[in-house]
Amino acid sequence: MYIGQVAKDILKWPRPSSPPVVKLEKRVIAEYGMPSTHAMASTAIAFTLLISTMDRYQYPFVLGLVMAVVFSTLVCLSRLYTGMHTVLDVLGGVLITALLIALTYPAWTLIDCLDSASPLFPVCVIVVPFFLCYNYPVSDYYSPTRADTTTIMAAGAGVTIGCWINHFFHLVSKPAESLPVIQNIPPLTTDLLVLVLTKFAVGIVLILLVRQLVQNLSLQVLYSWFKVVTRNKEARRRLEIEVPYKFVTYTSVGICATTFVPMLHRFLGLP
């Protein structure tokens, strides 16, 4: 996502002109168009999930491939329908993601080992994304690109740190030796559906509470440090405030989602 967002501000290709295109979204209208980060994200999520699970769970590969293609295609078409991207923007996003997956795939296992073993890994996960976000390319005018990039990078860093905490401090149980290499996906029953929805609701409530608490606290600290009026919403757009508060907030959200939510589930007796 960082590569895609930065590419927008470097290439500075405009979004489709209106008219003739009718733009159905207003929030990101100030951003540039090439490449489509929605196309990048949907392609990355769908196909990394497919690649990561095809040797772990038992399901027809063709079915998984079709679902990945359909999901990414629907997202790409939605960007055309809303008038936010051209076909070239979407194709550019898909091709960039395909190239990144191909280049990084050989290192997935190594990254996973570092995640679970190295005590210095969390430092790199925090310092590198924060440095990249703080040194985001300066735009000619304000757009939500930097804020969105910081949110995504911070959430990813938080999830990674949360997984590291789980493995490093043995907060997750290791699978039994008798566990088959390829597992069957459990059937969807009423009990399972109720359990999933309950765990989801509990997790969402905790995440929202953590997000609100950390956001308010980090903003108060930054406002006090830089002597900014608390109710000045424009101050949130300043580099020295926007990047730190969003990074701290969404890193906390990522850690909460991967570490504290499962702990709460176990405390409540939710398997």
Rank of each mutant, 00 (worst) to 15 (best):
D148T: 01
K233M: 14
L99S: 11
L270W: 05
G158W: 03
V210R: 03
V253G: 09
E31N: 06
G156E: 10
Y81L: 04
F267A: 15
W108P: 07
P175D: 00
I165H: 05
N166D: 11
T160P: 02
I185Y: 05
F200L: 11
K12R: 15
V21T: 12
P144W: 05
T145E: 10
K246Q: 13
R56N: 12
T43V: 05
I10N: 03
S52Q: 03
I51K: 04
S252F: 02
L63N: 00
K233Q: 13
V210I: 14
L132C: 14
V6S: 08
V28W: 11
V123T: 12
S78W: 01
L213R: 01
V172P: 00
V128Q: 07
Y245S: 15
E31H: 03
Y2Q: 08
L213N: 04
L110M: 11
I152Q: 10
R236Q: 11
P106K: 04
I204M: 11
T251M: 13
T48W: 02
S139G: 07
L188D: 05
L114C: 11
L209P: 04
T104M: 08
V253C: 14
T230Q: 08
T48R: 01
Y142M: 04
C76G: 15
I3N: 09
L206V: 10
S42N: 05
F71H: 02
Y223Q: 13
P137C: 13
P106H: 04
V66Q: 01
S252D: 02
V243C: 06
I185N: 02
M40V: 06
P144C: 06
R27A: 14
V243Q: 11
A154P: 01
V243D: 12
C256T: 15
L88Y: 07
L219Y: 10
P16H: 08
P35E: 00
Y134N: 08
A201E: 09
L50I: 01
F226Q: 12
A68H: 02
L193C: 08
L217E: 01
N166M: 09
N166G: 10
C163Q: 12
V229G: 07
R27Y: 15
Y2I: 04
S143C: 03
G33D: 07
K199L: 00
D148I: 03
D55Q: 10
F260P: 11
V90E: 13
L209I: 15
G33C: 03
L99E: 01
D112I: 00
I45K: 02
K12H: 09
C133W: 04
V210G: 06
L206A: 12
D115P: 01
S36I: 07
G64A: 07
F131Q: 03
T149F: 04
A98S: 13
T150D: 01
Y245H: 13
V253I: 12
V228Q: 15
R56V: 14
H167D: 15
V90Q: 11
P122K: 03
Q220W: 05
F71N: 04
T97P: 01
T249Y: 04
K233L: 15
I111F: 14
K8P: 09
V138R: 10
V253R: 06
T149V: 06
T145R: 04
L50F: 14
G92I: 03
M34P: 01
A235R: 01
L264W: 02
V229L: 09
P14Q: 06
T249P: 01
V159L: 15
V202I: 15
H265P: 00
M263F: 05
H167N: 14
L195D: 08
S36A: 13
L103G: 07
V196T: 11
P20S: 11
F121M: 12
